[in-house]
Design a protein around this nucleic acid. Sequence first.
DNA 1: ATCTTTTATCGTAATTTGACGATGGAAGAG
DNA 2: CTCTTCCATCGTCAAATTACGATAAAAGAT
Lengths: 108, 108
Amino acid sequence: MQQDDLAAIMRALGHPVRLEILRILARKAQNCCCNDITDCLPLAQSTVSQHLKVLLDAGIIERRAKGTRNNYCVRTDRLAAFSVATRDYVGDLGTAAGSCADVLDAVS
Amino acid sequence: MQQDDLAAIMRALGHPVRLEILRILARKAQNCCCNDITDCLPLAQSTVSQHLKVLLDAGIIERRAKGTRNNYCVRTDRLAAFSVATRDYVGDLGTAAGSCADVLDAVS
DNA sequence: ATCTTTTATCGTAATTTGACGATGGAAGAG
DNA sequence: CTCTTCCATCGTCAAATTACGATAAAAGAT
């Protein structure tokens, strides 16, 4: 995964409400629409819809028209890839840096 | 780690420049000041300083006065905790959701 | 055909972000 | 003491984010 993509997903996830929305989606899994989420949050429907769009644009969730409703669900594959990319990124930093604090202590 | 803290770190990491700054810090490990980073990026010193503040406020990096300079380094511990928290969060979503897309396919 | 439900989108307002140049203060160098 | 280097902070500006209410379109229900 590209660094910019990683940043984009981080940014999309970088809001407590959106983390909570994903949890709600995961819990109600198979049949969750915008109103269902709005019922769980102290926010207006339009605000929730906006947050859903952010997650949608980042490719973290999926939308499926179902009659008069739109069902959303988590894109587990994308999140798994993100989790791996995050681990790799952090891992790279760690191996490159060693324990920087210790080095500074040793030098001073 | 609290969900809000996770969101705060995600947000701090949710910018390509800041991901790049962390990489630079990790590479130059033991002796990296604001100017060093600025030299690696097409940005003004004040802009880099601002990004450093964001990372600092999120607890992702550490500052150490060293003579006339301020050395920064990555807080590997915090990033490791973040990596774990991310994995756990994504893992929770996965187990709660199953493969939601498949469920929807089966229902439709 | 009409009504209701759902929800994306528009318009708006307040706040935050991201970028810059300028500046002042802190600390070593001469 | 003076000079230079480093850099956090201030002021500014444009753009993005976050929230809201209003609204219209789409689709099922009556």
